[in-house]
Amino acid sequence: MAFSSAVITFPGSNCDRDMAVALEQVAGSAPLCIWHGDAELPQGLDLIALPGGFSYGDYLRSGAMAANSPIMREVVRAADRGVPVLGVCNGFQVLTEARLLPGALMRNASQHFICRTVSLKVENADSLFTKGYDAGQEIRIPVAHHDGNYFADEETLDRLEGEGRVAFRYLKNCNGSRRDIAGVLNKAGNVLGMMPHPERAVDAAHGGTGGLALFEGAIKALATA
C-alpha cells in the first residue's frame, strides 16, 4: 500500500507546499492536503505534518489559534493513538500550544527575524524521525523564524534531556533557546517539533540535503513497519 501522509494547511501556512513536495519526493506518493476547518482526518494515515508559516497571522501567540482549530483536535487524538506527527517551525509552535509537546516558543532573544542555514547536532538518533542520522552527526538546515526561542522550566528541561527527548540542538544558539534546543520529541517518540526546516534541505538545488535523512529514515521505517 502506498505511503499515506497528510499536510495540514491553516490560514497563513506558507510552507505546506514545500512539505508536500518533500514528502512526495521521498515517499513516492503525494500527501493529502487537509484544510484546518476539516473536522475529520482520513483513517490510516502513516504521518501527519504541520507546516511552517504564520497561521492566523500569529494572532495572540504563534500557533495559539491553530492549536484550537477543529482539525487539531483530530491531530491530538491521532498523536495519542501513536500516529507520527511532524511539526516544523510554526508547526512546532502549534504542537506546543496544543500541549502535544512541552515548553513554548518565545520571541527570538535578538528580537530579529532570522533566516539562514544553521548547523545542528543530532542528539537522539533512535527516534522515528531521527533514525536516518547518526547520533552526534552535524547537519545543516535552514531556519526562518521570529519566535523560535524555546523555553521550558528547568525541571522540564532536565526531564527532556534525561529521557532523550532533545532531538536536535543548535551548534551555535541563534535565538536564545534554553540549552540550545532546536527540536523536541514527545514521551512516546511519535511527535517531533523543530524550528529548522528539513523540507527546505532535501535536494542539492536547495543548497543542501541536511533534511533528507529525516524524511528517508521515518518513511522507510513506517513503510516497512
Binding site: 495572540l60 501567540r61 495559539a64 484550537n68 506546543t96 500550544e97 512541552p102 515548553g103 513554548a104 518565545m106 523555553f151 521550558a152
Partner: peptide
C-alpha cells in the same frame, strides 16, 4: 487557561 494565556510561560 485554554486560550488567552499560555500557562507554560
Amino acid at each position: 487557561e485554554k486560550l488567552l494565556a499560555n500557562t507554560v510561560i
